[in-house]
Design a protein around this nucleic acid. Structure first.
Lengths: 225, 225
DNA sequence: TAACCTACCAAACACTTGTTAGGGAAGCCG
DNA sequence: CGGCTTCCCTAACAAGTGTTTGGTAGGTTA
């Protein structure tokens, strides 16, 4: 039974930091290294399909040795996802507190999202695939919370935009929200950092399509075949 | 070792129908029932996280009894995914062979996709989550093939559209393709049949956003707050 | 009635899984 | 030197995994 509550160096989201820490104190840098390779494997194979032995293999050590650094396999994803979401929300909050107009808010959120994908592509892929399935366990309730904040932020900007006339009023706003949200984040499944397009370039193209559509507008420069 | 090749009633994609079938012959209707509940569980929990015992539970029987109908857990997903893709491609081919213009082709493909999501929501969700991870095994190579056909169909329509001036020429066409593809299919993660919107309604709204953007066009009816 | 077939159960099998306990090598500090 | 700390290994554990085997209740056919 995996309930021997005895955390050596908890950094996850569960706030109970009780029980005086054991004598062992693994270095945070090594943890980050291991979490990085773990995230890569999780993203590629899926969380449940990934064995602890595979992660250890990729890290050049044996399965049991991982437990010097981490409590459990679960606390690895926990730490991967929660640190990603923390960084994400500092970026998002900066945008939301900037007092921008609705359109500029959407633009900034999209750009920030693609930057986040650039930095945490593996974590984003994991979040995409497993968050819904993980959110059941109480340890990962913060995933559901984050989803709610997400929705409020985007829906708020969209609603304000419709009220001010900068977004179309004839669209189902919740559909538009899902449309925006999904297209942005699924990009993590094909995006590879160091490719032809920078995150900002992708954000620009993406915003161009979402805001203006893929058919030519009248006042745009004429095409030539 | 799970290699005792002895299929009782193979319907998957692997073309080897060798070895005279054993005396048992399960009814196809019961198979479809079981595959339906299996697809539901797979979609909700993920393929690897789903145990055979859970599926059997949901179907009101014991784990071993499933093996009267199916060779293995793997052949269940195989059959789920391949029958879905078969139906999908008959629909797609009908559209592609209709000789429509680029814009009409895109519209028809999108609408057909949402209809397919309506009919096979669980299968689509499984395809979304697991196809990349399953495509490694030789049995599921048809997933990769399908992905290629997919890309050719959409990219072809987009390129023709750009050439004919009905789509903007200033967009990276591969980026546009990925955006189209992803937004359409991720809808399976939130779509629930019998909801407020019919598949055709969703397709209409989605196409409206993709084609014309979410900001108001000049010649559109004016908004009123 | 007897033979047969369908669809399931009961019980086990071999194997993989996450996890643990104890030990030991290398380096640093007194 | 001896003690201490960091990091990993060896070897095992118990639980859970997909799968197999043999059996059997109930219906259909002859």
């Amino acid at each position: 039974m995996p309930n021997s509550t005895r955390n050596r160096a908890s950094t996850g989201n569960s706030a109970k930091n009780s029980e005086k820490k054991t004598t062992v104190t693994p270095s945070p840098e090594r943890r980050r290294e291991l979490l990085s390779t773990a995230a890569e494997v999780f993203a590629a194979q899926g969380y449940d399909a990934t064995t602890v032995r595979r992660i250890a293999d990729e890290a050049g050590m044996l399965a049991g040795s991982l437990y010097y650094h981490f409590d459990s396999k679960e606390s690895m994803v926990d730490e991967i996802l929660s640190t990603f979401l923390n960084e994400l929300w500092t970026g998002y909050d900066a945008v939301l507190d900037a007092g921008l107009g609705p359109r500029e808010t959407v633009e900034a959120l999209v750009t920030e999202s693609f930057r986040e994908i650039d930095r945490h592509r593996a974590a984003v892929a994991i979040y995409q695939k497993e968050s819904q399935h993980l959110a059941d366990r109480p340890r990962f309730h913060y995933l559901t919370e984050s989803r709610g904040r997400f929705e409020r932020a985007w829906l708020g900007a969209l609603e304000r935009g419709v009220a001010e006339g900068v977004f179309r009023a004839d669209l189902d706003i919740r559909l538009a929200y899902r449309f925006l949200r999904d297209t942005v984040w699924v990009a993590a499944s094909w995006y590879r950092p160091g490719g032809r397009h920078s995150p900002e370039e992708i954000a620009r193209q993406y915003l161009s399509m979402v805001l203006d559509g893929i058919t030519p507008r009248e006042e745009q420069e004429p095409q030539e075949p």
